[in-house]
Nucleic acid binder design. Structure first.
Lengths: 220, 220
DNA sequence: ACGAAAACCCTACCACGGTAGGGTGGTCGA
DNA sequence: TCGACCACCCTACCGTGGTAGGGTTTTCGT
């Protein structure tokens, strides 16, 4: 999948919702190839962090922060060093946010309702020096929802029922032995199920499976 | 073996922000012992899902949904079958939300700003039949931020700089060989770094590391 | 100037994961 | 009844991952 090479620089997520931070940070590290992802709960913490450690390669900021909107932070960042790629993320459809944000120096704007794929595309674009402003600011965020598979069913993945159970336990990080004893079968049998799963999913390791499917729920 | 693994009942997350959903769902499965977590993007989808599949053991609803607030959904749920444990989650500090939500039949209310630990405690409480309403609705969400460590900052995890780099690549699912070549060191050196990381984190596998820091639980 | 710690290298050993290639018994639909 | 498929078992092989126990160099704080 994506190749982001070793020491590319780190990403910084600024959001005051821990769970959201968690989700975004996880997604960044798993699907966008970021080695280090740091989180800050607000603008001040973000600036302090950057002062102490270097300039991040990418900054993702929630528009609505506890200590004011992201606009101030944005301007400060731009004033200090315009180098950082800043991507602003918002949960609502406030008109003009995109343009405000762009004026303040952001390199892109995305909506929390966007599917993760869009998110990843935006990150990639910004990373390459491009900008990413989906709706041309007058298009008013088309309500057409971009639903995407966040939960996967083993069947529509081409797996048998048993393989699905094995997959579920594999995703939870259980070693073969435990899967075997939990299923009351031999470790060998588990291995064979796993071999089948691997080649059906086109990967070679169990860890590739985990990094591939992690974050989406398995529906049996 | 462990608590609610096998067929304890599933959790349902209702939120229209994919990334948030991702975070919450991941946290539920990793830190709250939920084997199955399903996600719905709105109230309608939630109801449809419950109609098709069974009653979930836990429902987590974002207060602000695209198709109106969660109150309608809450009432519908309560009217249909009061059995479900519903936990409402909100991102802002709107006064009276907690009481509104409680009146509508929710079993608990949490704030997105709350640290994940609080989230987990709320889930556990609701699961045991108790309720969870942090501020007594008049206390107006103390601004004292509840910052907590939740993301990979190698240093405040007790890791050296190099170990942090290795950890990052490990989390991306890269095998030792690749890490070694990316870092221009021997595979052996990488192994030693990893051994150090493992015992500092108190785990025994790299997959335990991944599942630990990425959300999947291992609960042995 | 000295000691500690980090980063690097080496050999060797063993458990685990995954593959290959055999076989059995059961269920289902043509 | 026959074939297809699933689940299960077995032995055997090998690559990777992780540990143990040696060692060298550089960096850094006191």
């Amino acid at each position: 999948m994506n190749e982001g090479d070793g020491h590319a620089g780190y990403a910084l997520v600024v959001d005051d919702h821990p769970l959201v931070m968690r989700g975004v940070a996880g997604y960044l590290s798993s699907h966008c190839g970021y080695a280090w992802v740091h989180c800050a709960a607000g603008g001040a913490e973000c600036l302090a962090w950057i002062a102490r450690h270097g300039q991040p390669e990418l900054v993702i900021v929630d528009f609505w922060l506890a200590d004011g909107s992201a606009l101030d932070l944005l301007k400060t960042l731009s004033a200090a060093r315009a180098a950082a790629n800043v991507l602003v993320m918002s949960g609502d459809d406030g008109v003009g946010i995109a343009s405000q944000v762009r004026a303040a120096g952001a390199r892109g704007f995305i909506h929390k309702n966007d599917p993760p794929e869009t998110f990843a595309r935006a990150v990639r674009a910004v990373r390459r020096g491009k900008t990413w402003f989906t709706d041309a600011d007058g298009q008013a965020a088309a309500p057409g929802r971009g639903r995407h598979p966040l939960q996967v069913s083993p069947v529509d993945l081409g797996l048998t029922r048993r393989q699905g159970e094995v997959l579920a336990m594999m995703l939870r990080g259980l070693p073969n032995k435990r899967i075997a004893s939990a299923l009351n079968v031999t470790e060998q049998t588990v291995k064979e199920h796993i071999t089948a799963i691997l080649q059906r999913l086109g990967v070679s390791n169990r860890i590739e499976v985990i990094t591939l499917l992690h974050g989406r729920a398995l529906r049996l």
